[in-house]
């Protein structure tokens, strides 16, 4: 009984879930190591970036100037705005002075003439006097109203005049502003024209410089090529064992194919001198002077790939 129980008893495996978690953790750790430990390059290392300028870098500076100019022109219109505010308060001042001064001068004249009259006519009937007084009072009232109306009219006229003056002043100011703006625009245009002229000049100069540089470079290249051709010829000449006593000045031409580095790939006789001894002597010399001197600049090698070497018997 007990033995069979033992036999069938399952092995209680400890912490198998923990083992799984640890396994996952180890992988996470490894992945983290891969991801953060190594510098995975997203983009390939940037090679040489060459900017090809059709113009010299001067045009780059000029837009900066043109940007600066409008900035200067911006604060200027602010000044005229401040100026018109000062003249405006001035015109109203004289107007109130005139209106105050004039009416009192006229009023006393009427008042003095009318008031003494009732004093002389007072002895006659009271009723008549009263009537007269009433009439006079009415008349005075009418006169006063007339005067008031006149004053109002005068005030209105003054106001109209003031408004007209203001309008005129405003118009003048506007005209001045317009003129100023026109002047500024003209100045701007002139400045722009000057800039354009400068740019054109700079471009011309740059082109001239470039042309000069290119010419210089071409000269240098041609100089370099001719120099090395002379060197090659000199080296070959130094290796030639000349066959003695050939009549005249025979000329032999060889077509030499070169490899980069100065090695000789192929030598072909393109024009014989007529003397086999001389031809073979020159051919041997060409092979002997094997690393032929080449310019260090590999770009120039194309000039030397196929060389025509002409050797004169006598120099």
């Amino acid at each position: 009984m007990s033995a069979s129980i033992l036999r069938n008893s399952p092995h209680s495996e400890p912490k198998s879930a923990l083992a799984g978690a640890l396994a996952v953790f180890v992988h996470l750790f490894f992945v983290a190591l891969l991801v953060f430990g190594l510098n995975w390059k997203d983009h390939p290392p940037e090679g040489m970036t060459v900017d090809i300028w059709t113009e010299l870098p001067k045009p780059v500076q000029e837009p900066v100037k043109s940007q600066l100019l409008p900035k200067q022109s911006v604060p200027e219109p602010l000044k005229p705005k401040i100026e018109p505010q000062q003249p405006k308060p001035e015109p109203p001042k004289p107007v109130p002075q005139k209106t105050i001064v004039e009416p009192p001068v006229k009023k006393p004249d009427i008042a003095v003439k009318q008031k003494p009259e009732p004093v002389k006519e007072s002895p006659p009937d009271l009723q008549e006097q009263k009537k007269k007084e009433q009439e006079r009072a009415k008349e005075q009232e009418r006169i006063k109203e007339l005067e008031k109306q006149k004053e109002l009219e005068k005030k209105k006229e003054f106001e109209k005049k003031q408004e007209l003056e203001k309008q005129k002043e405003l118009e003048k100011q506007k005209e001045l502003e317009k003129q100023k703006e026109l002047q500024k625009q003209k100045e701007k245009e002139q400045a722009a024209q000057r800039q354009r002229e400068q740019e054109a000049k700079a471009q011309r100069e740059a082109e001239a410089k470039r042309a000069a540089q290119q010419a210089a470079a071409r000269n240098q290249i041609t100089n370099e090529i001719s120099k090395y051709k002379a060197l090659i010829l000199a080296k070959i000449r130094s290796r030639i064992v000349m066959p003695p006593d050939l009549p005249g000045n025979p000329v032999v031409e060889f077509n030499v194919t070169l490899l980069p580095g100065g090695d000789i790939l192929d030598v072909r006789l393109s024009r014989s001198s007529g003397y086999a001894a001389f031809d073979s002597a020159v051919e041997r010399a060409i092979f002997l002077s094997k690393p032929l001197p080449l310019p260090p600049d590999p770009a120039l090698f194309n000039e030397f790939r196929n060389l025509n070497i002409t050797v004169h018997y006598r120099e």
């Binding site: 495996e13 400890p14 912490k15 198998s16 923990l18 083992a19 799984g20 640890l22 396994a23 996952v24 180890v26 992988h27």
Partner: peptide, 17 residues
């Protein structure tokens, strides 16, 4: 990846056992 996960699981299981 599967093999690695499984083998690590067994490694830890066997370690504990």
């Amino acid at each position: 990846v599967m093999i690695s996960l499984l083998s690590w699981w067994y490694i830890f299981r066997k370690l504990f056992v």
